[in-house]
Amino acid sequence: MIILQTIGFLVLEKFLLVGLIVSLSMIVAMYATYAERKIAAFLQDRIGPNRAGIFGLLQPLADGGKLFFKEEIIPLASSKFLFILGPCLAMITALLTSAVIPWSTPLHLFGKDIPLQVADVNIGILFIFGVVSLGVYGIMIGGWASNNKFSLMAAVRGGSQMVSYELPMGLALIAVLMITGDLRMSVIVQNQVAHGWHIIYQPLGFLIFFICALAECNRTPFDLPEAENELNFGYHQEYSSMKLGFYLFAEYINMFISGVVMSCLFFGGYDIPFVNEAAWGINQNLLAIIGFVVLMTKAGLFIFLFMWIRWTIPRFRYDQLMNLGWKKLVPLALANMVITAAVILWLNK
């Protein structure tokens, strides 16, 4: 009976956590669309959305409502099941990655510690990698099922871009893992709390990882799958209503999650720089909340950086994209990996 109760409590706790994280991702993604328009307006010396609510704060709700009530069109020549599966997959893979992220230090409620991480699995960061590598299918299946040449070309571009940039991303990650010696996200963050952030040891690795994250999220300057002057609208050209909304929304969720992942891998996760917050001796729950706010601030700064880049840098040409990925980033990441390994070996001697 007691075992049953503990299991029940665990399941309830995890369900609550999953629900919270999913709604958090949704809300952040919603307001990321608003932030994108406001930042674009700021950089172009405009005002931006300001009609719905104060400062246009209800604009995301208005946009969502509009998408919901639009007519849903499924092209006759499309393969219907896959046409619907495409945006579902894009959304699922976008939300799944948040499962292994340590959001903060554990909470202390009802006499026990509750870790703010859904699953601290042994393979940690590789799980994120696996889910990201599946993100291609949302684009590929949607683009193919639309039965439209432009969609298909965009889907193929998107797929090859994501597969190509996963490689340097993984190589940059290996250097981080060599420092940590563990794949668990919680250990990676704790290691940084103890020994300083990984950005100090791995500046080049971070740069490579950041560029690859831009490419994985299909953000400018790597938004080739959505190059509207060549491909009309990209892989979601035939989509309308909320299915289009899912594709667009998944992109913003991906952006948020990649911001959080980069904060966890290189910027200490929930750690506050230059201070030892554990020595303050304040309430554990308060500490957890502060840690969470710190992590969200870091992620928010990354989202801002993504948007800043989008409205500043023009798009690459396709051959430039492939050259950068395969001929520059892969050798750089390999060199970074070998140098890191050599230094670690030398220091351990």
Partner: peptide, 13 residues
Amino acid sequence: IVNIIVYAGAIMV
């Protein structure tokens, strides 16, 4: 996870 990354995520693409 390697089975998923390599086979489902790359080769099948």
